[in-house]
Amino acid sequence: MASSDLEDLCLHINMKISTIKKTLQLRNIGQEPSLKSMLCKIGHDMVLLHDLLNKMETEVQQQEKLNNLLKELQKSAERDQNEAQHLCENIPPHLPKPTRSCITGLTVKCEEQAKVVEPERAKKPTKEPRLIKEVPLITAEEFESVPAYMKGRLTYDQINAVVQDLNKAVVGKYKILHQPLKSMNAPVRNLYHRFLEDETKDTKGEFFIVEADIKEFTQLKVDKRFHGILNILRHCQRVREVRGSKLVRYVIC
C-alpha cells in the first residue's frame, strides 16, 4: 500500500471520529434543561425558515413566468409599433371616392337579388342615383409642387379643410337642385330659383358654386386667405372660374 493511500485512510477515520465526538457533545448538550428551550426555538425557527424559502422559491418561479410573458408582450408591442409606423409613413393622400360604375353595379346587383327572392312580383325600374361631383383633396405631392409664393404660410391640412367646406357647399346646393320642386318649402324654393339664375351657357352640365352658396352652407370666411387657397386649387386644377353678370362661379374640374 502506498503511503499516500494510508494517509488518506487515516484522515478519513479521524474525520469520522471527530464527527462522532461532536454528535455526542450535541446530544449531551441537548439533555441540559437550560438549553432545551433554546433548541426548541431554533428548531421552530428552522421550520419557519424552510417555509419562507419555499414561498420565495414559488414567488421566483411566478416572477420568471411573468418576465417571460412581459418579453412576449414587448415583442408583440414592438411589432404593432413597427406596423403603425409603417402605416403612418404611408398614409394615402386621400381615399378614392365611389365611381359611377361602382354605384351602378351595386344598384344592378341589388335588383338581381330582389328578382331572385321575389320572382313573381313586378319591380319598377329603379332610378340611377344622381352623383354630385366633388373637389378631390390635394395630395401631398401636389402640395409640394405648389410654388412657395402661392403657399406662403398655408399648410397642407388648411388647404384640404377648405376643400371639404367647398364640397359641403356643392353637396348642399345640388341636393336641393335634385329634389322634386313640390317637396320644397318656401325658403328652399327661393334657393332653388337662385341656383337656376346663377347658371349660364358656360356652366351648363357643370357643377359649380358661388360665394353665396359658400356662406349658405358653410362657416367658411370668404376673405384674402380663402382667395389665396383658391389660387392653389386653380393651380392644381381642382376648380376654375367662370365670370359673368358680376358673379364669380367656381366650377369643379
Rank of each mutant, 00 (worst) to 15 (best):
S76T: 13
E128G: 03
R130W: 01
N190V: 11
K168P: 12
I20L: 04
V135A: 05
A161V: 06
L95T: 05
L177K: 04
I13W: 02
C10Q: 07
S4K: 03
Q219I: 02
I91Q: 00
H178I: 02
I229W: 03
H94W: 01
C10K: 13
E134I: 14
Q81P: 05
E57P: 00
R240P: 06
K97V: 05
V162C: 15
F143V: 10
C110R: 01
R121G: 04
E78C: 08
A122Y: 02
R238K: 15
T19Y: 03
P180Y: 08
E120F: 04
Y149H: 15
L166W: 05
V146N: 13
E78A: 13
E141A: 12
C102M: 06
N67G: 12
L53S: 06
S34N: 08
N90A: 09
P125V: 12
H86D: 11
S4E: 00
L220M: 12
P180M: 07
L95R: 11
D5I: 00
Q219E: 04
E134T: 15
E134S: 11
E206G: 06
L24A: 13
V171A: 08
S76A: 14
K175E: 04
A212W: 02
L166C: 14
R100Q: 06
R240E: 07
L177M: 12
Q237H: 13
A140H: 08
P136L: 01
K133C: 09
K224P: 08
Q237G: 08
I214D: 09
G152H: 06
Q25I: 08
V162S: 09
L49K: 08
Y250H: 14
L53C: 04
V116H: 06
L69E: 14
E197V: 11
L49H: 10
P33M: 02
K123H: 12
D198C: 15
C110P: 00
A140N: 02
K36E: 00
D8I: 01
I252N: 04
R153P: 10
T107L: 12
N160M: 10
E142R: 09
R240C: 11
V117H: 10
